[in-house]
Simulated scan of single mutants.
Amino acid sequence: MTEPIISVTDLGIQFRRNKARRRSFKDLFAGRKRRARPNQFWAFRNLTFDVAPGEAIGVVGRNGQGKSTLLKLVAGVILPDEGRVRVGAGVAPLIEITGGFVSDLSVRDNVYLTAGLHGMSKAEVAARFDEIIDFAEIQDFVDTPYKHLSSGMKVRIAFSVIAQLDEPVILVDEVLAVGDKSFREKCYRRIDELLSAGRTLFFVSHNERDLRRFCSRGLYLDKGKLVLDGPIGEVLDRYNEDYNNPTS
C-alpha cells in the first residue's frame, strides 16, 4: 500500500470570538458600554482523511467552514488544537501569495527573497529568474519597487515564483479567482503541467468549473464536520443540493 503524502487524524482547531452582552436599560441610563466576552468555537473537529501521492483533492463548503484554515494547517502555518497533520513532503503554498513580499524592495529582490524563503538556493533562483519574470509578464518592472505594482501584477509575480518550486505538494486557495482571463488560462496550463508531473494538489475554491477540471476527489466541510469524502462530482452534487435546500 502506498504511504499517504498527507495524513490528517482527528484534526480540530479552535478560534476565539467576542460575544457582546446585550445592553440593559440600566446600562443605557448609566452610559455603560458593551463589554466583549471571549467565547471559543471549533472551526472543525474530528477530521480524518489521507491523501495519496499524485491525488488532486478539492475542498468545498460555504464561507466560514474552515477550508482555508485546513490548508494553513497542512502548510504548517498554524498548529491544531486537537489531532495531527502529517505531510510527508515539502509544500508549495499558493495561499495569500502576495503576503510575504516586501513593499519597498524591488521585484528582483523580492523574487530572490521569497524563493529563498521557500528553499531555493541563490543559484537556482538565478537560473530560473528569466522564466519567472517572463511568466509574470513584468519584464519592464524588474527593478521597480514592489509597492508600485498594480494588484494584478503582484498576483502574477507571486504565482510565478511559487509555481517554480519543486515541492511535491501544491496548496491552492482561491488564487485562480484573481487576474485577467489570459493569465488565469496560463495558470491553468501550469497546474496541468504540475499534475501531469505527478504532483499532489490540495485545492480550495468556490469555482465548480475549476474543481471539476483539476480534481478527482472532493472533501465537503460543513458546520465543523467532514460531511462527505468522495469523487468530486458526487461531492459537488451534494454540496449544491444542501446549498439550494438549506435546512436551517
Rank of each mutant, 00 (worst) to 15 (best):
A127S: 01
E131V: 03
T114F: 15
V85E: 08
E124I: 03
E124W: 00
V102R: 11
S121C: 10
V111F: 06
T114E: 12
S103K: 12
I97H: 06
A123Q: 08
R84E: 12
Y112P: 09
G116Q: 04
L117D: 02
A115L: 10
L113F: 13
V107G: 07
R108P: 14
R108Y: 10
D130M: 05
V85T: 12
V91E: 05
S106W: 01
T114A: 15
I132S: 05
I97V: 15
F129L: 06
A127D: 04
S106E: 10
R84D: 08
A92K: 04
R108T: 08
G100N: 06
S121R: 00
A92H: 09
I95N: 14
T114C: 15
H118A: 04
A123K: 01
D130S: 05
G119H: 06
A127C: 01
S121K: 09
I95K: 12
L113Q: 12
R108H: 02
V125D: 06
T98C: 11
H118C: 12
L94S: 06
A123G: 08
V102G: 06
G119L: 01
I132G: 05
G116Y: 01
S106N: 00
S106T: 12
A92C: 09
I97R: 07
D104K: 04
G116K: 03
M120P: 04
E131Y: 05
N110L: 02
G90M: 11
V111I: 15
Y112S: 15
Y112R: 10
F101A: 03
V125H: 06
I97L: 15
R128Q: 05
L94Q: 07
